[in-house]
């Protein structure tokens, strides 16, 4: 990324703990427009927690978040959405007992001119977005609990992309998807990237991360191992970072803030 550009998002020195458990310690990441940053690490490394700070689900113990170079206050998911941050949660975070349109517009319902819910308009919009992700999808009127895991994931993705996000957090977005749907999401990520959207992509599939990401940030046991350019490393080196927690000697760190504050 061009170093003179302002990052879309910067999270600096984030600390999060739950009771006595330190889930994130002194983590720093950044993201530029039209960029995909792959966030990788073992189970329990703190990836989801880090991203939930950005999406407003958790409030950090300390640390700062900058959006467009300005200090942002994100106290709850509404604040994050107002800044154009949309999230596909690892747990999907769907309201199981209502249908796909109700989930897609949860918290942002379309209203008729009398201030009542415009279910028909919401269903029409849902059909449009879902058509982009899974043209065969039919269950628009069934509670999402009755959908398959992959269909539910598609609903969660549709919700995140429908509202013109500028910053997209995808926490293992293809974990439950079939090959065709996974390919669809991959194309979608590439297309969103072209539109200038910044994407944090959490995935355990190193192959996917290499295919889609521009930079890769590695976390291990709540701490940052480092951020590297995808083109400077190979898969073995990234695996080494995830498992061993050591930076490869040849690859430079590519986080401006970390570079300036070693």
């Amino acid at each position: 990324m061009a170093p003179d550009q302002t990052p879309l998002v910067e999270m600096r020195n984030i600390f999060v703990s739950f009771g006595g458990v330190h889930a994130v310690e002194d983590a720093t990441v950044d993201l530029y427009p039209g960029e995909v940053v792959g966030l990788v690490g073992g189970n329990g490394a703190g990836k989801s927690t880090m991203m939930k700070v950005l999406s407003g689900a958790y409030r950090p113990d300390s640390g700062e978040i900058y959006v467009d170079g300005k200090l942002a206050t994100i106290h709850n998911p509404r604040d994050a959405k107002a800044l154009g941050i949309e999230t596909i949660y690892q747990t999907l975070a769907l309201a199981d007992n209502v249908d796909a349109p109700a989930n897609l517009f949860l918290g942002r319902e379309i209203l008729t001119r009398w201030g009542t819910l415009d279910d028909i308009a919401m269903e029409a919009a849902t059909r449009k977005v879902m058509g982009r992700l899974n043209p065969l999808f039919k269950g628009f009127k069934t509670p999402v609990k009755a959908l398959s895991g992959g269909q539910r994931q598609t609903v969660a993705i549709a919700r995140a992309i429908h509202f013109n996000a500028r910053i997209l957090i995808m926490d293992e977005p293809t974990a439950a998807l079939g090959p065709a749907e996974t390919a669809q999401v991959r194309d979608l990520i590439k297309q969103l990237k072209k539109e200038g959207i910044g994407i944090f992509l959490i995935s355990h599939e190193i192959r996917d991360v290499f295919d889609l990401a521009d930079r890769i940030t590695v976390m291990k046991t709540a701490r940052m191992v480092g951020t590297v350019n995808k083109d400077d490393v190979n898969e073995d080196e990234v695996l080494g970072m995830i498992i061993g927690g050591t930076l490869p000697k040849t690859a430079p760190v590519t986080n401006a803030y970390v570079e300036a504050h070693p």
Partner: peptide, 11 residues
């Protein structure tokens, strides 16, 4: 149906 999802949905 899902209190956590409702909260994360911005409600």
């Amino acid at each position: 149906g899902n209190p956590e999802a409702a909260e994360l949905g911005g409600i």
